[in-house]
């Protein structure tokens, strides 16, 4: 899929989590993904982590204390993916 990591992530969120009532363009890059923002739950987080691994080849660890910050928004997740990709290059 073409586009920035942020755009790809938004499509991934809609497709992987089967959010029928939300379009990728409706997701605000800086908005929180969980609870008060997009309203995702912790099971969504798990599914999203698997989808991110499949799509971008980067993996988050279950016991990583930075996970909360990483999964806060599309922007924070995109920053994490960029950093991981640079590290593996």
């Amino acid at each position: 899929m073409e586009g920035t990591i942020e755009e790809r992530l938004k499509h991934l969120i809609v497709d992987a989590l089967m959010l029928d009532d939300i379009k990728a363009d409706d997701i605000v890059t800086e908005e929180p993904l969980f609870v008060e923002g997009l309203g995702l739950d912790s099971i969504d987080a798990l599914e999203l982590a698997l989808a991110v691994h499949k799509e971008f080849g980067v993996r988050t660890q279950a016991d990583d204390e930075n996970n909360r910050a990483t999964f806060h928004s599309v922007k924070s997740l995109a920053d994490f993916i960029r950093a991981e990709q640079q590290r593996s290059e």
């Binding site: 798990l46 982590a49 990583d64 996970n67």
Partner: peptide, 13 residues
């Protein structure tokens, strides 16, 4: 119960 880490749900499941 789950911690604030969203991926902690793996352990909960």
């Amino acid at each position: 119960g789950p911690s604030s880490d969203p991926l902690d749900m793996q352990r909960i499941i």
